[in-house]
């Protein structure tokens, strides 16, 4: 059992949890993920490690309530436990001194890009970060990102906070206005965002790393459900990734595979909401 020792609401439907998992915290590095399970009937959910503290033996997880499992996870409180936290899984980010780098976080993707930006800055890079969300209330960790960056650009799709733009717009300006300066780009966010970041950077020839979040069960190379086509062949996100060269990813295939369980997800949400309504009636 892995106890939840801290919980925060970062934005509507985006929650942070600090969980006791010393075996993971001891080894975790930027870019890696864990698999969690809420309860016995629960599915195995891959979540990127947003932060970790080896001394305290904790990992910080940030998730968006998009399906039944994450909605249910959002109802857990400090003192409750997760029954599975396995990891750290996946290759860590290749942290090195590149020069000037750009780190892009979109929506809940701000959480996993933060430890990467921080590690890159600690490694001596000049870090330019771009964070974005649909609207201002969905943004979080602006100050943390500012502390890990030399420059921070904040944008929202609707202009309710920061600049009214998609993250690709300031990115394109940087690449156009500072030719030759940017050595590497990291982008984490929704699949569509990573697809268009990769399209934006390719003409400029600046290597672009994305972190993929696909359907997954074990997270150790066993099921192959997470496979994507990248680098000319099938790759397993869990053991070959989660980071890939964004130019090499077959984005349309990835996006269509993410839709596969959509009907069952809707069914699960409906069944769960019926169940939790009944529970509320019973306690009322």
């Amino acid at each position: 059992m892995y106890r939840i020792i801290e919980k925060q609401d970062l934005a509507p439907a985006i929650k942070l949890m600090v969980v006791e998992a010393p075996h993971v915290a001891r080894k975790a590095r930027a870019g890696q993920f864990v698999i969690v399970r809420i309860d016995e009937p629960g599915e195995r959910i891959p979540l990127t490690i947003a932060d970790h503290d080896a001394e305290q033996g904790t990992v910080t997880l940030i998730f968006q309530e998009v399906g039944k499992s994450t909605m249910q996870m959002g109802t857990l409180a400090v003192g409750d436990s997760l029954i599975t936290v396995a990891g750290p899984l996946g290759h860590p980010t290749g942290i090195a001194a590149y020069g000037t780098v750009v780190c892009i976080g979109g929506g809940v993707g701000i959480a996993p890009v933060f430890p990467i930006a921080r590690a890159l800055k600690e490694a001596g890079n000049r870090v330019v970060s771009i964070i974005g969300a649909r609207s201002g209330d969905l943004l979080f960790w602006e100050e943390r990102m500012r502390s890990a960056s030399d420059e921070l650009i904040v944008c929202t799709d609707d202009g309710s906070y920061g600049r009214k733009a998609l993250v690709t717009e300031p990115l394109r300006e940087i690449l156009e206005q500072r030719p030759g300066e940017i050595a590497h780009i990291w982008a984490i966010g929704p699949g569509v965002m990573m697809k268009f970041v990769s399209r934006t950077t390719q003409p400029f020839g600046v290597p672009t790393t994305v972190s993929l979040n696909t359907v997954m069960i074990d997270g150790t190379g066993m099921c192959g459900g997470c496979r994507v086509v990248a680098n000319g062949g099938a790759q397993f996100v869990c053991v070959d990734g989660p980071e890939f060269d964004g130019w090499q990813v077959d984005w349309d295939l990835l996006l269509s595979r993410l839709q596969y369980y959509r009907p069952q997800e809707q069914e699960a949400i409906a069944a769960w909401q019926r169940g939790s309504c009944h529970a509320e009636e019973a306690t009322a």
């Binding site: 009937p41 599915e43 195995r44 069960i217 066993m222 099921c223 192959g224 069914e267 699960a268």
Partner: peptide, 19 residues
């Protein structure tokens, strides 16, 4: 492996009782 793991280990044959 995926098909059987979903059904056996994760008990997907009992979805949505199992997630």
């Amino acid at each position: 492996n995926e098909y059987l793991t979903r059904s056996n280990l994760m008990k997907a044959y009992r979805f949505p009782e199992y997630d």
